[in-house]
């Protein structure tokens, strides 16, 4: 059994920019790979979220029912859950539909009013997840241990946070590392 940390990343209602920023850590990724196994991630071919994960970076807001379900699975199987990026922390751009109210108010103009052919709101039970009435930050549906805002958080910020987590150091005096936007 490896003594490496078991790290996962998940991609909920977001643009994947936070994952891009994660990859921007460049050569630190080698150091990271030395110390951790990436046991689940959109950039790894793993179907089911595994058990006994040490750290999970959660990108994106809770925008649909699949997001909600996965967030709960993450919580049940992870020691330290990190809200990764502004969408996870605050809803951010993903939540910009919230002032418009019911999701229908967004779906109908886009999929019905604005199209000529086959104007229908996409729905397929079990395949297309229904939207949440309001987009929620991750901590509204599961307990979150660490917050890493930024849109996206730049690679250095992520590096500092991930290093601290792998070293089991508390995140203090973070200054602009917690700046939104």
């Amino acid at each position: 059994m490896s003594d490496k940390a078991r790290v996962a990343t998940v991609w909920l209602g977001g643009c994947s920019g936070c994952h891009m920023s994660f990859l921007d850590m460049d050569e630190f990724l080698f150091d990271f790979a030395e110390r951790a196994d990436l046991v689940y991630s959109p950039i790894a071919d793993v179907k089911d979220f595994p058990e006994d994960v040490d750290v999970t970076l959660v990108e994106g807001a809770i925008a649909n029912e699949d997001n909600l379900e996965l967030a709960r699975i993450v919580r049940a199987n992870t020691t330290t859950v990190v809200s990764f990026g502004d969408c996870a922390v605050s809803g951010n751009v993903t939540a910009m539909r919230n002032p418009l109210g019911d999701p229908e108010n967004v779906l109908v103009p886009v999929y019905v009013d604005a199209v000529d052919r086959n104007p229908v709101v996409p729905s397929e039970e079990g395949i297309v997840p229904p939207l949440m009435p309001q987009v929620l930050p991750v901590h509204r549906v599961i307990d979150v241990d660490v917050y890493l805002p930024g849109c996206p958080p730049d690679a250095d910020k992520i590096k500092r946070a991930v290093t601290a987590l792998l070293d089991a150091e508390p995140l203090v005096e973070r200054g602009t590392d917690i700046q939104f936007g």
């Binding site: 922390v89 605050s90 939540a95 309001q134 890493l148 973070r174 917690i178 700046q179």
Partner: peptide, 21 residues
């Protein structure tokens, strides 16, 4: 406002967003 959030250490908002229109 963004600076104040950094100064006060606000890394997330505990309260529900009101999403005014």
């Amino acid at each position: 406002l963004q600076d104040v959030a950094v100064d006060t250490g606000m890394d997330h908002v505990r309260f529900d967003y009101q999403s005014p229109q």
